[in-house]
Simulated assay, not measured.
Amino acid sequence: MLFFDAVTKVFATINTDEPRYQPEYTFIDDGSSDHTLTILKQLQAAHPETVHYLSFSRNFGKEPALAAGLDAATGDLIAVMDVDLQDPPELLPQMIDLIENHGYDCVGTIQKKRRGQGRFRAYLSTKFYKINDAISEVHIEPNARDYRLMTRQMVDAITSLPEYNRFSKGIFSWVGFRTKYLTYESQPRAAGDTHWSLMQLFNYAIEGIIDFSDVPLKIATWVGGASFILAVIGLIVVVVRALLVGDPVAGWPSMVSIILLLGGIQLFCLGIVGEYINKIYLETKHRPKYIIKERK
């Protein structure tokens, strides 16, 4: 309700002279266990022409929910927003103006500093963007939010991508189109708390890197080649030492070290390859990104 009221007030200021814009709301209930669906039903009943909702059969995650919203959107301009009001609706008039009067296809947002985010998380987030920018052909603006306004043409391009494994920030950049970014101060949550743990954020970052870069596979190849060279050098050292010293028992520490080195490198490389194979496995199943239990 807080989100709906806030956005409605913004459009009331835009439509002061004439009703130029008619907002349409599509809420995604990602398998919530609270009273979200009940509230959405009440809101839809009060505004049947402008409010719609999709309720998933279970929790599918952020990316499927975002994809479902874009699939269901029917407007000429489509905005992606979180309902906790950390994405300020007050930016919408400026975003609309930039698209309609300045030739942009998309207006994204960058949050200066996230409230409630510890220094360690902020440090990891900054490093992720730097690493991704270094090894991926797709540039992602540091600290960019999913909050953005897009044209119908851009959204159609995004929804045409069939992949199951999705990293929206990368997809937004990959499809291209002329994009402008607005910077804003972080906003406190209107309600609720984040459910993203550090491990979930780490896994999400790994998925983003794997989805748009094959450099990890190349790293595995380089590491494998380097380990082979080191193993050969180690073998030569062990043989020469055995011939000169004549005490093979004394060489067991170096042998164990070489075995552990090779074993660790092999497991590291297999882990990287396994991540890519896992993505391929999920793609070949052709499972839907989400399942809708109820919609209105």
Rank of each mutant, 00 (worst) to 15 (best):
L217W: 13
V175G: 05
F177C: 05
V215I: 09
I131G: 02
A205P: 00
A205Y: 08
D193S: 15
P216W: 13
I171F: 01
W222G: 11
P188V: 05
P188G: 13
P162W: 08
I210T: 09
V223E: 14
S136G: 03
I140S: 01
F212A: 02
R145F: 04
Y147I: 08
D156M: 13
D133H: 03
I206G: 02
Q200R: 06
A190V: 11
T183V: 10
E163A: 10
H195R: 14
S136N: 00
A144R: 06
Y204E: 15
L149I: 09
I135H: 07
N132L: 09
Y184A: 00
F177E: 01
I140M: 10
T183F: 08
D211C: 13
K180T: 03
F128N: 05
S168M: 15
A157S: 13
K130E: 07
R178T: 12
T179K: 12
P162R: 12
H195A: 14
M150T: 07
F202T: 10
S125M: 07
S168T: 12
L149W: 07
Y147K: 06
T126N: 08
I206P: 02
K169R: 06
D156P: 05
S213H: 00
D193I: 12
S186D: 08
I210P: 00
I140R: 06
K130C: 00
W174D: 04
A134V: 03
P188D: 14
D211I: 04
I206M: 14
V175A: 10
A190D: 08
V138T: 07
F212W: 09
D156W: 09
E163S: 12
T159E: 10
L201M: 14
F128S: 01
R166E: 09
P216L: 10
G170K: 00
A190I: 06
Y181C: 04
N143F: 08
Q153N: 05
V138M: 06
T159F: 02
T194F: 08
L217T: 05
S160Q: 15
H195I: 14
N165D: 13
L149N: 03
S186L: 01
D214F: 08
S136W: 03
R148N: 08
G176R: 09
S213A: 06
Y147L: 10
A157K: 08
Y164S: 02
V175C: 10
Y184G: 01
L149C: 09
F212Q: 05
A144C: 11
G192L: 07
L182M: 11
Q153M: 03
A157F: 01
D156A: 12
F212G: 03
A190G: 13
P188I: 04
T183N: 04
L149K: 06
D214T: 10
E207Y: 03
S125N: 09
I209K: 07
T179P: 06
D214H: 12
G192H: 07
G170R: 00
T221C: 14
L198P: 01
